[in-house]
Computed example of a mutant assay.
Amino acid sequence: MADQQMPQGGAASLSEQRSGAGDFPPPGQLRFRSINRLGLWTLYMKEVRRFFKVQTQTIWAPAVTTLLYLMIFTLALGGGGRIVLGVPFATFVAPGLIAMGMINNSFANSSFGLLVGKIQGTIIDYLMPPISNAELILALVAAAVTRAILVGLAVAGAMLFWPGVDLTVHHPWAVIWFGLMGAILLALIGVLTSLWAEKFDHNAAITNFVITPMSMLSGTFYVISNLSPTFQTISRFNPIFYVISGFRFGFLGQSDIGTTNEAVLHGAIGLGVLNLVLWVAIYYIFQSGWKLKA
């Protein structure tokens, strides 16, 4: 009989456990009381190591491609000492090419992970770890921005030795802000694409028919004042136009959207608001489980 009696302390402990049962969420309902720093860092490093293992393809190859753009367009359009916005053509086009290389690779990185997970059946590796949807999005975007920065530094470093290119920075805030906002914008679009896409053809369609035209028609190789009024208006609805022009303003002190900080500030605020709206939209898509959960 003695071994069947429960000590008073044990009964109290059991009572406490039962009374504290209400602190736990119902089965299947996640509750996060704070940021999971370790989980966030782990997923971020996983994504970084994924593209860094093939850095020849993900960092150096895009840098070489961007330099080829510089060489071809400089020879084709920059002959005869052509001056654009008061600087040699090579100096004019260089910042735009750096920004274009950054945003294209940011999109390529963020649009790959979730899509491969869905195709290979490993999407559970993203959904099961104890991290919130906000942390998952943050890790994916941060890894894409990291790749964009590395590509930008590689391209800029090579351009420093290119004849006729001057990369003197006039407004550091614009270089940093528009570089980051452009990389974040394309990273968010990449995450949205990977959520929607069900096969690599879908991803390629967005790349070929949306991202590439928006990048090539963003004023990277020309000033939009050379266009007709109709196409100037269309260009101003292209968010990548503001990324390229704002980034160029940081180097040259002038651009298509203005020659003063006040004139460029509107584009800077607009990109920030657009990124915030995209972030919120993607967060709620993750919450709904659209094309992620059965």
Rank of each mutant, 00 (worst) to 15 (best):
M1W: 10
A2V: 13
M6E: 12
S13Q: 13
S15H: 12
Q17K: 14
A21Y: 11
G22Y: 10
G22S: 13
P26E: 15
G28T: 01
R31Y: 13
R33K: 07
S34L: 08
G39R: 03
G39H: 03
L43Y: 05
K46Y: 00
F51L: 02
F52E: 09
Q57V: 14
Q57D: 12
W60A: 10
I72C: 02
T74K: 00
G81R: 06
R82F: 12
I83H: 05
F89L: 08
A94G: 07
A99F: 05
I103C: 01
S106W: 05
G117C: 05
G117S: 04
I119A: 01
T122I: 03
I123F: 01
I124W: 00
D125S: 03
Y126M: 06
P129L: 01
P129Y: 01
S132V: 07
A142W: 03
A144P: 03
L150R: 05
G152M: 09
A154H: 04
V155H: 01
M159F: 11
M159S: 09
H171V: 15
H171S: 14
G179L: 04
L180F: 14
V191K: 02
S194F: 00
F209M: 10
T212D: 04
T212C: 07
S218M: 05
Y222A: 11
V223F: 07
L227A: 10
T230Y: 12
I244K: 01
D256K: 00
I257A: 03
I257S: 03
E262V: 15
A263V: 06
A263P: 11
V264G: 03
I269G: 13
G272C: 08
Y283I: 00
Y283K: 05
L292G: 10
L292H: 08
K293L: 14
A294Y: 12
